[in-house]
């Protein structure tokens, strides 16, 4: 479905965020991307839909190499890639419905979107998705009137509104409390299973990743250092990804009230 070939990114400042990342994502597969802050997780996700321009390498979505596309062709392909953001990134002063409908922007003409005259099919689908994420009665509220968990549900509905072939998810739970985090992750995995949708989920929280992901990719300093099943995340592997730290408190406790502390102190100091 998605194939990354030797993807690299060096910023103008000279910082290398990604070096030679290659990855193969199957249909319906949920991939958790873990690694310390500054390892290049965000950059990797943004290089896929070229919100960040990769310096070299190939990004094959189906049989299209996204890196080689012109701006307008790229916009056309971006419709196939839904994206969900860390701090929801809803347009806060628009209503929930407008935020969901904005997922159709790549499909409709400027005037249609300006006058908010979406096709009946799109509106029906937007209502359906809002119902699916449990926010039907909030459709006409302004986005900034919702709670964090509700906003992230709107973010998910917006991404699904695109009819995507792939989901890119950037730290979906970083601004949420532990319970809401689990609810959001569960919703995400359910939705992906329903639609056989592959997703790359950038995630800080290792236990959460182990609980919900089918495959884990560990990134360190822009390189893939681990790629395998969640139960392959041994202490040695975690140390390789994050640097030395005591990993014992890591558990799969469902009622965990505090987010388990997986702060990669050493790595952060080194970074």
């Amino acid at each position: 479905m998605l194939k990354l070939n030797g993807l690299s990114k060096t910023y103008k400042t000279g910082d290398t965020a990604l070096s030679d990342v290659s990855l193969d994502v199957q249909k319906g597969q949920l991939i958790g991307l873990i690694g310390p802050s500054g390892a290049g997780k965000s950059t990797l996700i943004r290089c896929i839909n070229r919100l960040v321009e990769p310096s070299s390498g190939e990004v094959w979505l189906g049989d299209v190499d996204l890196v080689k596309l012109s701006r307008s062709e790229l916009r056309h392909q971006r419709r196939r890639i839904g994206m969900i953001f860390q701090e929801y990134a809803l347009v806060e002063r628009l209503t929930v419905m407008e935020n969901v409908l904005s997922g159709r922007l790549g499909y409709v003409s400027f005037w249609r979107s300006w006058l908010r005259r979406y096709e009946p099919r799109d509106i029906q689908r937007a209502y359906e998705l809002l119902d699916r994420v449990g926010l039907l009665q909030h459709a006409d509220k302004r986005a900034d009137a919702l709670s964090g968990g509700q906003r992230q549900r709107v973010g998910i509905a917006r991404a699904l509104m695109q009819d995507p072939d792939l989901l890119l998810v950037d730290e979906p739970t970083a601004s949420l409390d532990p319970k809401t985090s689990r609810q959001i992750m569960r919703l995400l995995t359910e939705i992906c299973a329903e639609r056989d949708l592959p997703a790359i989920v950038n995630i800080h929280d290792v236990p959460l990743a182990q609980a919900f992901m089918q495959r884990i990719v560990g990134l360190r300093a822009g390189r893939v250092v681990f790629d395998g099943a969640p139960d392959g995340l041994s202490e040695a592997v975690l140390t390789e990804i994050y640097g030395a730290e005591d990993w014992n408190p890591v558990g799969n406790d469902d009622d965990a009230d505090d987010t388990p502390v997986v702060v990669p102190k050493v790595a952060e100091v080194l970074a």
Partner: peptide
């Protein structure tokens, strides 16, 4: 976020 939806 709006750019990522493929908006013009």
């Amino acid at each position: 976020a709006i750019t990522a939806t493929g908006a013009a």
